[in-house]
Computed example of a mutant assay.
Amino acid sequence: MEKVLTATSYGISLFSHKIFQDFLKTEKVRTKKVLKNFQENHERYLSSLKDGVWVPFVPIDTLKYSIKVENKGEFFDDDWVKKFDHKDFNIHIDGSIWITGLGLLLEYDKTKFIDDVISSETLDGIPLSFGFRYDLESGKYLVKITGYSLKEKLDYPNANYGFLFSFVKVDHFEGFNDPREDEKYNFNVADMD
């Protein structure tokens, strides 16, 4: 099944739900406005990256994106062209990883993360998916994010852009990379055609 994510709030985030919740509990973060909390507490944000709690990447256009995980045998075919590779972002996984639109962290609701997908529909009946869960072996990983663009663009509501996530298991983290370093990383694949 093709997984198409509707990216909200101009970004995508990766996190293992249990690791994310444990971090919030340890940091005594009680607000549902988790994204705002990270924005206002830079040291907390950096600590979360160092510990592999999550990987947020912004800015990207608010569009639909095809999502694939190499560890699950998923790849983009010859109809797509690779636009970038950004790698070595820390991510700590406890049995599964969520790939979500960043908007889910504007008003974080842990009860939404029960099934394998977070979705709804437009009034016109167009399906919208805001997050997908993938089962992966527990451990520490470095994730590579590769952006793709469809060679022949399709009409809405099709996804003309996509991201491939590749997870490489490591024994421990050595330093960290901040995906929000704009001078170093550009994830906006829709702006690369």
Rank of each mutant, 00 (worst) to 15 (best):
M1D: 12
E2F: 01
V4D: 00
V4C: 00
A7M: 01
S9A: 11
Y10F: 15
G11V: 11
I12G: 07
S13P: 03
I19K: 05
I19L: 00
I19R: 05
I19A: 01
F20K: 01
F23A: 04
L24I: 03
K25S: 10
F38L: 09
Q39I: 10
H42I: 04
H42A: 01
S47I: 00
S48N: 00
L49R: 02
K50D: 15
V53R: 04
V58W: 14
P59W: 15
P59S: 12
D61S: 14
K64I: 03
K68A: 11
K72P: 01
G73T: 12
F76V: 11
W80D: 12
W80G: 12
V81Q: 13
K83M: 13
H86N: 13
K87R: 13
F89A: 05
F89S: 07
N90H: 08
I91C: 02
I93C: 08
I93L: 07
I97D: 03
W98D: 05
I99L: 10
L102H: 11
L106T: 15
L106F: 14
T111Q: 10
T111L: 10
T111A: 14
I114L: 11
D115M: 02
D115E: 13
I126S: 08
F130H: 13
G139E: 08
G139F: 07
G139H: 08
I145Q: 03
G147A: 02
S149L: 11
L150K: 15
K151Q: 09
P157G: 08
F163T: 04
V168W: 03
E174S: 11
E174M: 07
R180T: 13
K184R: 14
Y185K: 04
V189T: 05
V189I: 10
